Every structure is written in structure tokens, then in C-alpha cells.
Computed example of a mutant assay.
Amino acid sequence: MDPWDELFQEHLKVSARDVEASERALSLFNARLKAQRNRLWYTFSAAAACFALIGGAFMYQQQTAPLPHTVAYEAYSQVNGAW
């Protein structure tokens, strides 16, 4: 048997240290993936809240502003006099 074959045969065996290292790597990968998902979810939630706040502000502003036909009627009344 070739010395290289013997060397590779030795390293093909999976030891307890290999299993522990793979578990650590997998848990680190899962933690990073979870953090990335949480970051994406928080970003989406914050953007939705901002859009809702801005939309609410516009709706409130439109509600308190006089309607365009009322403004036109007031301008007409000022020019022609009240009936």
C-alpha cells in the first residue's frame, strides 16, 4: 500500500473532535442566520411603522385642511359679494 493511501485512510476516520467542531460550526452558522433574519424583520417592521406614521400625518393634514371647493367658493364670494 502506498504511504499516501495510509495517510488518507487515517484522516478519513471521524473522531469526536471532528463531530464537536462540526457542531460548533453549524451552531455558529445558525446563529448568524437567525441574526440576519431578525435584522431583516426589524428593518421591515421599522419601515412599515414609518410609512404608517407618514401616511397618518398626511391623512390628518388633509382632514384639517379646507376642501378645495370651499376655498373656491370663498374666493368667489369675496369677489362677487355674499348672496
Rank of each mutant, 00 (worst) to 15 (best):
M1W: 10
M1L: 06
M1D: 11
D2V: 01
P3M: 04
P3L: 06
W4S: 02
W4K: 03
D5S: 14
L7H: 15
L7D: 12
F8M: 00
F8E: 06
Q9H: 14
Q9F: 13
Q9T: 14
E10L: 13
K13C: 10
V14E: 11
S15E: 11
S15F: 14
D18C: 01
D18L: 02
V19R: 02
E20W: 06
R24L: 03
A25H: 04
L26R: 07
S27W: 02
S27K: 04
S27F: 06
L28P: 01
L28R: 04
N30Q: 07
R32P: 02
K34G: 09
A35K: 06
Q36A: 11
Q36C: 04
R37I: 03
R37W: 04
N38P: 04
N38W: 07
N38G: 12
R39D: 14
W41S: 03
T43M: 08
F44S: 07
S45N: 12
A46T: 08
A48H: 09
A49E: 10
C50G: 15
F51E: 01
F51Q: 01
A52N: 09
A52M: 06
A52F: 13
L53A: 10
G55N: 05
G55V: 05
F58Y: 05
M59V: 08
Y60D: 01
Y60V: 01
Q61A: 14
T64D: 07
T64C: 10
T64E: 11
T64L: 07
A65G: 13
P66L: 08
P68T: 11
H69T: 04
H69V: 00
H69F: 11
T70E: 14
T70F: 15
A72C: 08
A72R: 05
Y73I: 02
E74G: 15
E74W: 13
A75F: 14
Y76A: 06
Y76N: 02
S77R: 12
Q78M: 04
N80D: 10
G81R: 05
G81N: 08
A82G: 11
A82E: 10
A82C: 07
